[in-house]
Amino acid sequence: MSNSARVESPLEHADFAGLAALKINGGVILREAKLLGHLNLRGNANDPDFLKGVKSALDLDLPLAPCSSAQNANTTIMWLSPDEWLVIVDGVTEAAIEGKLRQSLRGHFAVSDISGAQTMLEISGKDCLQLLQKSIGYDLHLDSFPINKVIGTALAKSSAHIRRTGEYNFQLIIRRSFADYIWLWLQQSSKEYGLSVTL
């Protein structure tokens, strides 16, 4: 038995590398943005010191408007609730960034590394809107769901946070324990459009 620890995405068994090699030309394109660092950050948005501390640790202003997000080269912050944010960073860097946040924040706050609890799927392609319309009860028109908006919603009776990154590009943050169920759901619902997996 090997002594080295091995990290696995919750969708390791789906063999995305093998599926990507099939080079299917589908209307829905799925990619797992696996093994990223996910940090849950909680604190008081009305406290200027908290905002300043986050800014100095992440070099990014905390998005305060409901359902908004902020992004720079290697960090994305998503608004989850008035006192809760999800910070997504490159894999392996999350422990260092958690330490940085703890150093620059004072008082009543919480930072939790939840990288192992969830995973991110990116869906795109010309038919991805139809696929999402089957799965969530939210209006996907650009007026109600503009680029960079983040919503927490019910996705196929499970929950997900969905961020729009382009007119036909979405990020789904799903729970580890529901990852297989959602993978099956996405395969079945995208059958009529064709599903192509990329790496």
Partner: peptide, 18 residues
């Protein structure tokens, strides 16, 4: 389905979410 205004998200959402 009810259409419910969440005072924190500041928009209407489907009853399924609540």
């Amino acid at each position: 389905m009810l259409h419910i205004h969440c005072p924190y998200c500041e928009e209407y959402r489907e009853e399924e979410e609540f």
